[in-house]
Design a protein around this nucleic acid. Structure first.
Lengths: 248, 248
DNA sequence: CACGGTAGGTGTACGTCGTACACTCGTCAA
DNA sequence: TTGACGAGTGTACGACGTACACCTACCGTG
């Protein structure tokens, strides 16, 4: 083992949360998410494993950060068009990102609550429906129906906002460090940052308390809504003798 | 440490692959899939960890077995009806099972190739479309469009059948232990067992070799097919002023 | 009845993982 | 000059999956 390298080359750029995240994304892209461990990542960065913990709290937060990095990279918004092509392009753009980073869909699904960039993305899609004149009601069910196609997020997406979410303040660059009344402040900040998500979350009586009955929005209804929409579509196509590639 | 218990109570029912699987499912139902480890499961069964390996090859196979146990429990087939309500009821039945076992969707998605029971399930759904007069073409795209709603399986589902799948023979109770010509035998056995899946897989030119171009069936096309079906549906509903709960 | 094979349960051990905790060191403000 | 502080280090612990050698109770056969 060489005792002491001449002091150059050994100390590279001094590491940072951003560099850690970027390296993690690159590593996962190349070697797969299951190969990503704190130790391997540290090795990749030429550093001892524990050094990473000065920049991310733990592996969970590392994964959150990786999702943020990917989702934040989605292009801002498509030029003005009807809601339909706007939504279409936005979602296809998101899909492209998830195809580029094969691990991302799985990781996003595994997160217990959405990260800020994901919320921002959802907010923009909801905004497109609203701008197209969709009712809150229809927008809500449409979002559920799109389900995993709107990125890779499952239907339990809308859980977090109304809940006492410690995540939103912890991960987001919102100030509000602690204390009790600060929570309402955080809620307000969120309403400003994600107006459409907030509007939707507020308008819908999302009572998950009763699994079976429970008026308002239950998972079952959303599932059937999407299922029937698809089945009706199949029926229509079948009826008119549809065959592949009707669209260029 | 008690030297020697009176010899009763200590040796319970003698363990078996089935008992291991059942215990694993029960444990995951109760404690969550992330809490399930070989050691914990062994403890739950009052046995030393390595004892499990006499009944399952490794943890991967344990998870496969758990999926099998859940999926195999789906009721056989609904009484004769039009394709639409048949498919509908079958899928809702599958969904019920996945709701009962919250871990199942995630585990199914994580499997690299479908287990026999999953194949059988798919086969039955495909069969329903075919019985309804659907073309192979439309059936194929419909299955992709249903995507995660058909259980929890992703779109890369149809990879395995045409590939040199060592899994199909390894996991399935098909005999054919090894050797080269046995492979075609296994393929025939599969065609018998899952006729519709085989038909579909054979008819479709599933070339994943070229990600971008590649005539035939590419992921991108399937994604857009489903997306457009949904968007068209939304447009129609929006146009006719749809509001919640039009169906009982 | 003795006996050897075998299936099923055991014990020990290894390498890997995430990460707690105490440390060293270089930098910069006072 | 000092002393606080933040970034990187080293050591250690308790999980995890599982390889491998072992024991042991049972079996059909001689």
């Amino acid at each position: 083992m060489p005792a002491d390298v001449p002091a150059e080359e050994s100390r590279r750029t001094p590491l940072s949360r951003d560099r850690v995240l970027r390296a993690a994304v690159a590593f996962a892209d190349g070697a797969g998410i299951e190969a990503l461990s704190m130790r391997r990542l540290a090795q990749e960065l030429g550093v001892v494993p524990m050094a990473l913990y000065k920049h991310v709290a733990n592996k969970e937060e590392l994964l959150d950060g990786m999702v943020e990095a990917v989702v934040a990279g989605l292009d801002p918004h498509v030029p003005g068009a009807d809601w339909k092509s706007a939504v279409r392009r936005r979602i296809l753009g998101a899909r492209d990102a998830l195809v580029r980073h094969a691990w991302a869909a799985q990781v996003i699904r595994s997160r217990t609550s959405p990260t800020p960039a994901v919320l921002a993305y959802l907010d923009s899609v909801i905004g497109m429906f609203r701008a197209g004149g969709f009712s809150l009601d229809l927008t809500h069910h449409a979002m559920h129906a799109l389900g995993s196609r709107v990125l890779g997020l499952t239907e339990e997406l809308f859980d977090a906002p109304p809940s006492p979410g410690p995540r939103a303040t912890a991960t987001a660059p919102v100030s509000a460090p602690a204390a009790d009344p600060a929570q309402t402040a955080a809620r307000e900040a969120m309403a400003l940052r994600y107006p459409h998500v907030t509007e939707l979350a507020g308008a819908v009586a999302h009572d998950r308390s009763s699994v079976v009955g429970g008026r308002g929005c239950d998972d079952r209804f959303e599932f059937e809504f999407a299922l029937d929409l698809l089945l009706d579509g199949f029926e229509r196509l079948h009826g008119q003798g549809w065959t592949s590639a009707p669209r260029p």
